[in-house]
Nucleic acid binder design. Structure first.
Length: 590
RNA sequence: GACCCCGUAGCUCAGCUGGAUAGAGCAUCAGCCUUCUAAGCUGAGGGUCGCAGGUUCGAAUCCUGCCGGGGUCGCCA
């Protein structure tokens, strides 16, 4: 159990004791109690808002209540001091042994340090990427991919049973356009001059592969067929090829999925699950035939007022009811998506997270409404929007144009700057804020580059281990053996204030993991790691001017061992935290 | 016109779901290398948290209304 949980319990116990003794008249609700690091280090080790949070329930003034709780907490042998400050904060100064023990615990836990049971093994479905299989992934897809992947890592680490899912949009007009584009390339492969690719089709060169493949497999056979005959054949091959390309792009970024879910399978499987879902909703009274007011955008020329099949989204918080069928009788994208989310519910997910690009923001309300409807209010959908990425090179924006097919692919970026830089920088920003991604800056080996700065912290720790072998003769080479040894060394000599601060920072990691998982915000881990790196580098450099603060003290193996334990704790957190982000933790910078 | 995001130091951004004197990096200025890698560190200056109300012991954080920037509003996905 982490330090913060433990002291939250101690505070609760103190309050319970006071209630039993009659010092507090009414039993307050303890859930609001927070134990956190104080704003300023000078305030002590931990701070709690307990007195302020409970004052109202207890019918007491915050500071009066604080006095009593503080007095109770002072009785603990590990509490050196319990001060009251400001409006009623209780600041605890702890015996440093608490932090030393926390450090030993961290080392002992190793790769599992920070792992939490918060999720109670509850299933959660995280859907991310879900790019159309109509072409290579471009940088725009990158952020959602990395975000979703890191969020899934984080939730798993925080004790959820995570399923990572990709929804393949392999039905609808876009993949038909892909098929037509591939058919042109097929004719081209057979020697025909196809001229320019018509408007509405995909001009990308990449489709020639599929054209060549089809010509090799079918020869002239498809050429004289009518579209209804060749289209499904060409489409299947084209989609398979594009999905293979996407999977390979994802692999380059180390993005993983457990389930690739085909939209087409919902419609063309053994049963029409979209139709079944609509029928089911109709039985529940959530689908009806009706008319809609025209769109407000004013840009719709072919608007046609007609009676159509509508989902009663307004009953679940949306602004208007939403169509489920197009005029040609086929399902709208939304209809499929409802069936898809119903499938998630039927597969046992009560917690769903969808990661979407900023351009889909207007779709959130209706999807949440749909999930409410198909789950009878039992399931919760959180939609995380990742904002645009502005691609830069040395401060100059890299312009991309969809029309000319001139866009920077995900693969280009990964090849230019590396997986680690892409992943870290995509996470070094809140998901709903626009992100500038400078390809020149992220490969810079300097403190201005957060990726490097954090990785260097990890490498620097290992550099200490390499150098320490001369002073500590018995220091094991093997990482596990070393950690095992360091988890047992006496830490009493770690008494420098900066060393204690580092120990506190290490002890904070589990709390960061839980908060980030709860908020669905992996960027918090990235920022935390940056702060940890900052403190670690600072402590290192202090050793320049003050040699007695160096990690390795030539004639003092005992002190050296204690400090190596501190380094081990820091390194453990770097490795663990970077692992959550899917960023490598190198032992040497080259 | 409606809905969604954003607005915090000159710049780029955090701010732990309502707590203390609002933080970090860059930039500026003043310092630190015969070292456990200076690929780094220390210190200083710099803010009416877009504006105006409200909720309460307490608001950058929650509510309402404005202002500015971006996105979306199609039988595209």
């Amino acid at each position: 159990m982490n330090v913060f949980h433990r002291y939250t319990e101690h505070v609760c116990q103190a309050v319970e004791t006071l209630v039993r003794a009659g010092a507090i008249a009414t039993r307050p609700d303890l859930a609001r109690i927070v134990v956190e690091p104080p704003r300023e280090a000078s305030h002590g080790d931990l701070a709690t808002n307990a007195a302020m949070a409970l004052a109202k329930d207890a019918g007491m003034k915050p500071r009066d209540l604080a006095e009593k709780i503080a007095a109770e907490l002072s009785k603990r042998p590990d509490v050196v001091k319990a001060d009251i400050a400001g409006p009623g904060f209780i600041n605890l100064t702890l015996d440093p042994a608490v932090w030393r023990e926390a450090l030993s615990d961290a080392i002992r836990a190793g790769a599992d340090y920070g792992r939490s049971a918060l999720g109670a093994n509850k299933p959660v479905n995280v859907e991310y990427v879900s790019a159309n299989p109509t072409g290579p992934m471009h940088v725009g897809h990158c952020r959602g991919a990395v975000f979703g992947d890191a969020l899934a890592n984080l939730l798993a680490f925080a004790g959820h049973k995570v399923t990572r899912e990709y929804y393949i949009n392999d039905a609808g007009a876009q993949v038909d356009a892909l098929a037509r584009s591939a058919f042109l390339r097929y004719r081209e492969a057979l020697g025909e001059n196809i001229g320019p690719i018509p408007e509405g089709l995909y001009p990308g060169e990449y489709i020639t592969d599929t054209g060549t493949e089809i010509s090799a497999r079918y020869g002239n056979k498809l050429r004289n067929q009518i579209e209804a005959e060749w289209l499904p054949v060409v489409r299947d091959t084209a989609i398979a090829n594009e999905m293979a390309r996407i999977r390979s792009d994802l692999a380059a970024l180390d993005i993983k999925h457990d389930v690739f879910f085909s939209e087409r399978s919902l419609i063309e499987g053994p049963v029409d699950r979209v139709g079944a879902t609509i029928d089911w909703l109709r039985q529940q009274g959530h689908v009806y035939e009706g008319r809609l007011p025209p769109p407000k955008s004013g840009a719709v020329e072919d608007w046609e007022d007609r009676e159509q099949t509508l989902f009663r989204a307004t009953a679940f918080g949306d602004d208007v009811d939403r169509p489920l069928k197009k005029s040609d009788g086929s399902y709208t994208y939304f209809a499929s998506d409802i069936a898809y989310h119903k499938s998630k519910f039927d597969r046992g997910f009560r917690d769903m997270i969808d990661v979407w690009g900023a351009d889909h923001g207007g779709y959130i309300k209706r999807m949440k409404a749909a999930v409410r409807a198909v789950s009878g209010g039992e399931a919760d959908l959180d939609v995380k929007i990742v904002q645009l990425v502005k691609l830069m090179r040395a401060g100059v924006e890299v312009k991309m144009s969809k029309r000319s097919g001139e866009f920077v692919t995900l693969r280009d970026v990964v090849e230019e700057v590396g997986r680690d830089a892409v992943r870290f920088m995509m996470l070094y920003r809140k998901n709903d804020a626009v992100l500038d991604f400078d390809m020149a800056k992220v490969i810079e080996q300097s403190k201005d580059n957060p990726v490097f700065y954090v990785q260097y912290g990890h490498a620097r720790g290992h550099s200490v281990f390499r150098n320490a072998a001369e002073v500590v003769s018995g220091l094991p080479q093997d990482a596990r053996a070393r950690a095992d040894m360091l988890s047992r060394v006496p830490l009493g000599r770690l008494d420098d204030s900066a060393e204690l601060a580092l120990m506190r920072k290490v002890a904070l990691f589990p709390r960061i993991v839980e908060a980030a998982a709860q908020a669905h915000e992996p960027h918090r881990v990235a920022f935390y790691l940056y702060e940890l790196a900052s403190e670690f580098h600072a402590q290192w450099t202090r050793g320049n001017a003050a040699p007695h603060l160096r990690f390795i003290i030539q004639d003092d193996p005992e002190l050296t061992l204690a400090r190596l334990a501190l380094v081990q704790g820091v390194v453990t957190v770097f490795a663990s935290g970077l692992g959550l982000l899917g960023v490598g933790a190198p032992e040497e910078m080259r």
